[in-house]
């Protein structure tokens, strides 16, 4: 069921990874069944760097989608997910950058070209609108136009999210 690499990555055989040559997964990451990584898109400015970069100890739960952001028509830009990030079930990630130590809970929709800085928690079912910048140590919840809110997150979460990501790697 799992493919385990020498760097400690665990990738489910059922995970849909397209364009693996354009994807870099750092050590100790877990990619669950049903997760899909779209690395086969055309970049607007072809570069030597990867289309999808995932930092160490990151955790992509089942049925989440990582889609590089659209810059122009069918041309995309690269997406970078930092270290110790947890992406929840059924979450769609279309944004440009996710910082280190970020928890994105289940059923979120992170829309085109948004940026999430370090140490943030995106609560269940949140919709992050396009081109939104979420500052460091923020808790985000709700849907824009109805109950969207960006609140302050305690500094203690820096350590807690890191431990959570490490424990998830050992326990799931």
């Amino acid at each position: 069921m799992w493919i385990e690499t020498s760097t400690g990555n665990r990738i489910a055989k059922d995970a849909a990874i397209s364009g693996p040559d354009n994807i870099v997964i750092s050590g100790n990451c877990t990619i669950h069944p049903g997760a899909s990584l779209h690395g086969d898109v055309t970049l607007l400015t072809p570069s030597t760097g990867p289309t999808i970069l995932i930092g160490k100890y990151s955790h992509l739960n089942s049925n989440c989608q990582i889609i590089p952001p659209v810059l122009q028509d069918d041309k995309h830009g690269p997406v970078a997910i930092g270290a110790y990030c947890i992406v929840g079930h059924d979450t769609v990630v279309r944004l440009a950058t996710i910082g280190n130590r970020v928890i994105i809970e289940d059923g979120c929709d992170l829309q085109n070209l948004s940026i999430i800085y370090d140490c943030c928690v995106i609560r269940k079912g949140t919709v992050v609108p396009p081109k939104m910048v979420i500052p460091p140590f923020s808790e985000v919840l709700g849907v824009p136009g109805t109950d969207f809110k960006v609140g302050e997150l305690s500094n203690a979460y820096k350590k807690l999210i890191e431990t959570e990501a490490k424990e998830l790697q050992l326990q799931t």
Binding site: Y117, D118, C119, F137, A156, K158, K159
Partner: peptide, 13 residues
Amino acid sequence: TTNKLRVKFNAVD
């Protein structure tokens, strides 16, 4: 956007 702290006394520690 730097997250460095000079003093930190979080209860979790």
